[in-house]
Nucleic acid binder design. Structure first.
Ligand code: MN
Ligand code: MN
Ligand code: ZN
Ligand code: ZN
Lengths: 143, 143
DNA sequence: CCTGCTATTGCGAGTCATTTTCAACACCAG
DNA sequence: CTGGTGTTGAAAATGACTCGCAATAGCAGG
């Protein structure tokens, strides 16, 4: 079952409707992560008619359905992106030099959850990891 | 050397001036973490005269000097707080049940930095880790 | 196919934390 | 003291959303 089918089902199962706007948004985000503004810009540039408010609303609906997760790309909360859960659950490193976003995988949230559960009895339900610094290219430049 | 002395030195060393407003802000944040609005409310409640804009600006200056670090208390980055680097409490767990914020210490950012440096050559300069879930009390209630 | 109910949309207005503008002010080196 | 300039307060501006509401359009049922 594709991401788009999953999304349609999830929306219909909760009494929602599949609209033209939702369809184009879902198709666009099926392949990669997007933040609301960029996704909106991309769609309108491609001639699709949809409003920014609807992009925000649809991303929120899909997140509620468990099909997307929101992430922040840098520690200072610059940009909120939504990642489809079909892609591997990654976190992001943002280069302060060139702005490049480099995804990486880690089970650090899982490890932290275990530590907190064992040590303090805390039950972690969600976590956010954002790191920034300098990529290989930008480290060389400053040398 | 106290936090206040450190701050004064850092400000003067960079060509800045120690003003009445900066002094009271520095004294207040020397002991604990604050977000800008709360710090402002606390100071004005205590009869101190300072503007919210100056609170924001001073926190930013101190962060630039390396004396404070900003943190978000929950994964959805609701509240930004500044923590003095003299205290060791570095990260925060927010309870979704009662709103309690529980600080904890971990070298998990350090470990992640090492992993990224070794594996991908990335140089991490700052990172943010925020976790939320349920505290011990709130776990019991739902049982 | 119609139809009607109501979920959804578009657009403007509203939020809200944070930043900026700019004229008045106050540090502090000399 | 005093001038130069770093800082401040108040208000306006930002930016990233979120909301209100009338118009629109899915879609279940007939
Ligand atoms: Mn933001
Ligand atoms: Mn974070
Ligand atoms: Zn780079
Ligand atoms: Zn709790």
């Amino acid at each position: 079952m594709t991401f788009i089918e999953q999304a349609s089902d999830a929306i219909r199962d909760s009494g929602g409707r599949m609209t033209r706007q939702r369809r184009i948004i879902i198709e666009q985000i099926a392949g990669a992560q997007w933040d609301a503004e960029s996704l909106y810009a991309e769609l309108t540039a491609a001639g699709e008619e949809v409003s920014l408010a609807t992009v925000y609303r649809t991303l929120s609906v899909l997140e509620g359905a468990g099909l997307l997760q929101q992430r922040y790309l840098s520690p200072d909360h610059e940009r909120r992106v939504y990642v489809p859960l079909t892609t591997l659950q990654t976190h992001h490193f943002t280069c302060k030099g060139c702005g490049k976003v480099i995804p990486f995988e880690t089970d650090i949230v899982g490890r932290l959850s275990s530590e907190l559960a064992a040590g303090m009895g805390l039950q972690v339900t969600s976590g956010c990891i954002c790191v920034e610094g300098y990529c290989v290219d930008c480290q060389e430049e400053t040398t």
